[in-house]
Write a protein that binds this DNA or RNA. Structure first.
Lengths: 209, 209
DNA sequence: CGACAACTATTCCACGTGGAATAATCGGGC
DNA sequence: GCCCGATTATTCCACGTGGAATAGTTGTCG
């Protein structure tokens, strides 16, 4: 059990799988894919092995022997430990309770959008709305599929969350497009003063990182 | 001008600054901080120097001589190139038009939340709502401050976007808390079957990465 | 006027990720 | 019965990030 250093998202996903049942890494990969968890966590085979290796170094999982089937490379099966259960719970609690800024690119993009002319921006945003609608559609289908299957709702609440967020983004962009179209929101004027770097005290409004 | 390899967020921010005016890296750092752009982009002094160095390798910026003031370390001033302007525009357009999955942790957290008992989850979510409300408050203040200052609205539309998203998340969580409270959404039953890894064809619903 | 904190300015190292490389085996068509 | 592509299963390397380390310099409080 080395120093902890915070679980990565893939670490959490792996631990959660091992909490259900012992497995070898490739089986985790298959399960994650079969359950479409790659929509929630970035899953890359290479990264997965590293993630599990780290879990082992930190004593959160341990290998329960290595088996071989035919002439395939050796597979190491892992199981979760007591420490692993504790770490998983702790991390999950933190992820639920504490919002963190993850620096999504879209807000950054609109903040810098004034570098582009208004008509270009409207075109691009219209494209985005189309793409977002496709995503939303997909989520609605997914929800239908999963309800039809009778799967317990607590296993897919994230779908309703993503729908809600998507709908809001679409609505917000539509509003912006409207304002740009009617000229309510002026855009293409030249920028005022280039630099400012005065020495006003500036109350330091700290936020969570 | 080496191979392109896609601009990082900090690369975009740096380029955008140099599009206004030539500068040395530390000045960029100061400007980004003064403008509170670190709310939109992760800014770390170390990373900034690397980012600018890479921009130079790729021919997007070039140094316009190195000056020294007193006995301070040497400062290299950079300016944007033609290629730099093009790359910035291209990247901005892509960021605006194309939604990408950035794997935020909260959806992942709620998807795994069934590992925890219902009353714990409600407590954690209540905490999150408090924190989110504080964030929202902050953004409302920021908006007031910036309107009072008479700053052109196109420079802070991202604030209204973030408010909208925040409000939606809060509302969604409140809804979930309601359902958990009334027992409308059952939670604490034991999980049904552990593994499934059958071989159903499973239409491959591709999405943007 | 001396000490100490904060700012200026940059470099360096360890870590996690993504993607390619490897290699053997299985399934399907001709 | 043989070839080809997909699947199984894992390793390795290059890159970007975050945080610490460094070191001189300005401002401030007693």
């Amino acid at each position: 059990m080395a120093k902890s250093a915070e679980l990565t998202p893939l670490g959490v996903a792996s631990l959660a799988l091992l909490a259900e049942q012992p497995m070898h890494p490739y089986e985790m990969y298959q399960l994650l894919m079969a359950r479409h968890e790659d929509r929630l966590v970035k899953v890359r085979p290479g990264t997965l092995y590293h993630a599990v290796g780290r879990l082992e170094e930190n004593g959160l999982v341990e290998s329960t022997g290595t088996g071989r089937e035919g002439n395939r490379p050796e597979r190491t099966t892992y199981r979760i430990t007591q420490d692993g259960h504790a770490a998983l719970d702790a991390r999950l609690q933190a992820m639920l309770a504490t919002p963190v800024n993850e620096y999504p690119v879209f807000p950054h993009a609109i903040a810098e959008a004034h570098h582009l002319p208004a008509d270009v921006v409207t075109g691009l945003l219209a494209d985005r709305v189309v793409a977002l609608n496709a995503d939303l559609d997909f989520l609605v289908r997914a929800q239908e599929a999963v309800t039809a299957k009778g799967l317990d709702r607590k296993y897919w609440i994230d779908i309703t969350y993503q729908q809600a967020m998507l709908r809001t983004e679409i609505a917000w962009i539509r509003g912006l497009l409207e304002e740009l179209g009617t000229g309510q929101l002026p855009w293409d004027e030249p920028r005022p003063a280039p630099t400012e770097l005065s020495n006003k005290p500036k109350e330091s409004l700290g936020k969570h990182s």
